[in-house]
Computed example of a mutant assay.
Amino acid sequence: MIRLRLYTTLGCHLCEQLEALLVTLCAVPYRLERVEISDDDALVERYGVRIPVLVDEAGQELDRGMQPERLAAWLAARGWRDEMAWQALQRQLSGEALPRVTTRAAKGATQRGGRRYLG
């Protein structure tokens, strides 16, 4: 299991985006330590305008990791990227048509314009 550190702050939507991408793209088990920078003036000075910053066990940093291409390249350089997940994400980001999922309306429901209505 690899250990990663994420420099973050409360309510950081970019940090949440990076974490969601990491779940999708990382092919190896990992433990993520979140470090709140607002509790330490030195950390705010160092990371304040760069968060989210992801750091590996060797101390190599990735800032702006919420950009899928940057995170994918960083993971690939370490042999940690899930290639199939990365290809699927690239298709999704490029707007390539994904297979359409069809669903049947529940009993007693009708379906109009892709929405289900009960009764």
Rank of each mutant, 00 (worst) to 15 (best):
M1I: 01
I2T: 11
R5K: 14
R5A: 08
T9Y: 09
T9G: 07
T9H: 08
L10C: 00
L10P: 11
C12L: 02
C12G: 03
L14V: 00
L14T: 04
C15Y: 02
C15A: 10
E19G: 00
A20D: 03
T24D: 02
L25E: 08
V28F: 01
E36M: 08
E36I: 03
I37H: 04
S38N: 09
S38L: 13
D40M: 07
D40S: 04
A42V: 05
A42F: 04
L43E: 08
G48S: 01
G48T: 05
I51C: 01
I51H: 06
P52N: 04
V53H: 02
L54D: 02
V55Y: 00
R64P: 00
R64H: 12
A72S: 15
A72D: 07
L75K: 10
W80M: 15
R81Y: 06
D82P: 13
A85T: 11
W86D: 15
W86H: 15
Q92C: 13
G95F: 05
E96A: 15
R100D: 08
R104Q: 14
A106D: 13
K107H: 11
K107V: 15
A109H: 15
T110V: 14
T110M: 15
G113I: 11
G114P: 08
Y117A: 09
L118G: 12
